[in-house]
Design a protein around this nucleic acid. Structure first.
Lengths: 260, 260
DNA sequence: AAATGCGTTCGGTATTGGTGAACACATTTA
DNA sequence: TAAATGTGTTCACCAATACCGAACGCATTT
């Protein structure tokens, strides 16, 4: 958890700290939070009353919980990314056609965030949710995005990166990663071979806008079990690439003002 | 917009006011916000720096935008409702089987909120998003939920209700609504006949937990065009009711500790 | 009937959020 | 080239307020 006291408006920091406590504990009461955060009950009570009044917290009985207002604002935040509107129906199509789970991811700040995820017919893939952060170096989407960035930005993201997430089947150093990113760039496709979750493979392609700048990535997730080499190396990659192209076209239409 | 100064922690109120401005204007800069809210630039700057540090706001260039952190927390808030986990795959099935859009809604505080929405193959239904609020009296989901509540709670929700949302095809008074809610209770099904959006019809059924308490509703949305009377009065209602039953069973399993 | 749990209210005070002016930097105008 | 305008940012001052701690009301438990 971030140290909330290092920012100029400490009261807002306290409110957020209380929100995080509510999330961590799946709802809590005034006294409980005051204990955990080592604050007075009255202070906590004031914050909760404020957050409730503002619609971010719901009180039921003795418990306070975070409200669906976050989902409302979250849906809006997602709609800020043109990739979402342009890609959501293509994800449905990709997921149906491939029988795999599929989704969209974007780079926000220094993390790759899942914008949308659709569970496939073979339901035994990890339960990724919209809003989840994806590891940079051991997921197909992360690699696709890294490869599409300029070197300066990539260096920023990987500064101090430890290469310790995922299953350990992935790279152990920056130079190994850089080598793979070269391949990703030439193929226009990134893969993850059981590097993120055991028995799970991923395939992803970056999507750029009309200006050539990165808009995000579309990815596909599937269980290794019963997956033939040809399917992983030819069929599925083909579907992902064609989906990415389709999204690029939709994006071009919306970014240039429709069917130029 | 709520008056933010009526709550004890005014600084949090100000932060939220700034967030709302960012949403309203699709991102904004320090000066712009200071103008709109009639506050000093330094104050706005401090709040934005705090919100950025806490991860709720993203700065790109001169603009600040709300971040996907809201989506992350929103997904969590949604997962607090057992109806979501129990119903999301049933919604997919219902949507596929019926060819309509379908979704889940719950009562939070005094509003009915959409937990999940899946666009159907016939894509010309309103673009409902997770987190959207649904009108109480002119949507099928709203009526299903109202009908399932105790009288006291229903009175609370409808106190001061104006019956002016939707297309105007709906009820104009509380007594008319009450009459329909009786029918809803006996049929176990609520409908909306172009009352919310023109040319759109809805069907919904409430879902209760093992304690008999309301957990929310599952709904279906479809265009009137090309919809036969039999389909709207028999086929689709049958699908919705069987979906609701299926979710009730899933809920029972999870609430009693799996396959009792 | 006493004791413990909860959330809430209240006054006092040290902290701090807000202001407005000055600043650095970029872009636009003359 | 120089001035003018537009950003976001920094700073010192002061009134406003977020915080504390004790008291309170109300349940539930002992």
């Amino acid at each position: 958890m971030v140290d909330v006291s290092e920012f100029p408006v400490t009261a807002t920091g306290t409110s957020v700290q209380i929100l995080e406590t509510l999330i961590e504990r799946n709802g809590a009461g005034v006294t409980e939070i005051a204990d955990v955060l080592d604050r007075s009950k009255s202070s906590v009570h004031n914050h909760l009353e404020t957050l409730t009044g503002l619609g971010f917290v719901i009180k039921d009985g003795y418990d306070y919980r975070v409200s669906l207002r976050f989902l409302t604002i979250g849906s809006y935040a997602r709609s800020q990314y043109p990739l979402y509107a342009a890609g959501v129906s293509e994800v449905a199509q990709l997921s149906t056609a491939s029988g795999c789970s599929a989704g969209l991811a974007v780079l926000e700040g220094d993390s790759v965030v899942c914008l949308h995820h659709r569970l496939g017919p073979d339901t035994d893939t990890p339960r990724v949710e919209a809003g989840d952060r994806l590891p940079l170096d051991c997921t197909a989407a992360g690699k696709a995005i890294l490869a599409a960035l300029g070197e300066a930005r990539r260096d920023e993201l990987l500064a101090g990166h430890t290469f310790d997430s995922g299953t350990g089947q992935s790279h152990s150093s920056r130079s190994e990663l850089d080598a793979e990113l070269g391949t990703v760039r030439t193929r226009g496709l990134a893969v993850d071979r059981e590097e993120w979750y055991p028995d799970q493979r991923g395939i992803a392609a970056a999507v750029e806008g009309v200006d050539g700048e990165l808009r995000g990535a579309i990815y596909l997730l599937t269980a290794t079990e019963g997956l033939s080499g040809k399917r992983f190396q030819q069929d599925l990659p083909g579907l992902v690439i064609s989906s990415a192209n389709s999204i690029r076209n939709t994006l071009r239409e919306s970014e240039t003002g429709c069917r130029e």
